[in-house]
Design a protein around this nucleic acid. Structure first.
Lengths: 207, 207
DNA sequence: GTCTATATTCCGATAGAC
DNA sequence: GTCTATCGGAATATAGAC
């Protein structure tokens, strides 16, 4: 912890800029974000953005790195923790849906920005450390061998869980269309997801 | 079928423009797409874009309407057809994953463009016709009553299926990160999805 | 460090010749 | 219908005063 994670001093101008940029980039992406809007939101002048961060590109990189750096451990958690399998799954779904319903823009930002600028992400933003799926793999195989769960490929199980947790939140308008729900009904529907996904996954795992 | 769906004559200049715009908008979205790039891809001059479609906005609307108009029936299909439930689910997953693996950009385009410009979509692009989930709802309830499947909310079932079909394809880089796969391994993984999702859903429905 | 003013680049759109 | 040339505005970036 020698360095403070690239993150500037609290309440400083640099911090205000960073926070404003975070909000704007998160919702509009690199192409949709405008330096003027970031400056306005930060309550400072456009020129100051360039004083602290040399260019839009650099500012974007700082924000994107922070967003990814914050999200990556959340994914690794499912895969690396040492809890018993069922407990791990219950805990993960609960925690994960909580995080996403509070920060619905983050997964969509990551997905669509990587798609639009793959080079940038691969070269400068993505973390070099990958999660280590070995623990989870072994756990699933043990449970299968013991006859406590149905046979299943662990990797598909991981992706199934993550899909059902994230997708409805990022595709809210699409889901509303598919289900014919109004705004209030959709809100309710999303609140039911914790229990429904947990039930669904555990049911699919029964031997 | 009085009108030809707004679609111009095959091989005409207008068609070449439309196709090029389709490709560029699909991958880069409204903000990321540039008229110059579309013109280059179509092999014509920038001015011609404005001759046929008065503005970038209008060109975008034509493309977005076509993309959505093509996608909406695909979703409705799961919900409205009259096949027996299990067969319907098997068929849908198979068909749906096929469509998405051939057109991986479409769901992401729809999701992220709606998020960035909700007004535009709600007012001018989204179809007024919603799918009618009644058939599917009744079917699920009948199967539950007959004891042939476990109790489940039909709406969550629909969304679970759609989530597991779409998400891995649009979040490919994220999934690669989570699973620690290289490009070839990821390709293989996605090919396994058809069977894996079908198995998973049917397992979750066992009484 | 912060501001105003200005330079520079890019991009959507139009004018006008052919 | 198609092109070249150009306009006009917007957005990023810099210069320079305070």
């Amino acid at each position: 912890m020698a360095k403070k994670e690239d993150q500037p001093q609290a309440d400083s101008t640099e911090q205000k800029i960073f926070d404003a940029a975070h909000e704007v980039f998160l919702q509009k992406g690199m192409d949709g974000a405008k330096m003027q809007e970031i400056a306005d939101l930060a309550g400072i002048n456009k020129a100051l953005l360039h004083y602290y961060y040399r260019s839009k590109e650099k500012l974007y990189e700082a924000v994107a790195r922070a967003i990814i750096g914050h999200a990556a451990p959340v994914i690794s958690q499912l895969i690396e923790s040492e809890l018993p399998l069922e407990e791990k799954i219950r805990h993960f779904i609960d925690f994960y849906i909580g995080v996403i319903s509070r920060n619905p823009f983050i997964p969509l930002f990551i997905i669509s920005e990587i798609n639009k600028h793959p080079e940038r992400f691969i070269e400068t933003i993505l973390p070099k450390e990958l999660p280590k799926p070995q623990v989870f793999m072994r756990q699933v195989e043990e449970e299968i061998a013991a006859g406590r769960i149905r046979e299943i490929h662990p990797k598909h199980l991981i992706i199934n869980i993550i899909s059902m947790c994230i997708f409805p939140f990022i595709a809210k308008p699409m889901a509303r269309f598919a289900l014919g729900l109004n705004s209030a009904e959709m809100k309710l529907f999303l609140e039911e997801r914790r229990d429904q996904v947990t039930e669904f996954v555990l049911a699919a795992l029964r031997p």
